[in-house]
Amino acid sequence: MKLVTAIVKPHKLEDVKEALTALGLAGMTVSEVRGFGRQRGHTEVYRGAEYTIEFIPKVCIEVLVDDSDAHDTAQAMVVAARTGKIGDGKVWVTPVDELIRVRTGEIGADAL
């Protein structure tokens, strides 16, 4: 099993969700996060004083998939989230050692 994690622009959440639904994924977890990458933050002026927005709002999407689906899932997220502009985010895949469904106690791929 793999955990596919994507950090994307908030307004791309809907596109990514649709792409994943089209792949037939059963579930996903979404959280609001803040951070910066190579683009760093940007500066604004408030009442005449400059300030830096250091952490830019992003959305973090996490999906658990079978090993064989990991590549396609990650690719679908990348395509759906891409705007071509700086700050589009990242997608990465990590291995998952153990997985248990809370309600039934099913273990491993059965719990997906």
């Binding site: 803040r34 604004e44 408030y46 300030y51 830096t52 927005i53 250091e54 952490f55 830019i56 709002p57």
Partner: peptide, 9 residues
């Protein structure tokens, strides 16, 4: 404690 723009670095 890491709000956007609130912390002057």
């Amino acid at each position: 404690a890491h709000g956007a723009g609130h912390a002057p670095s």
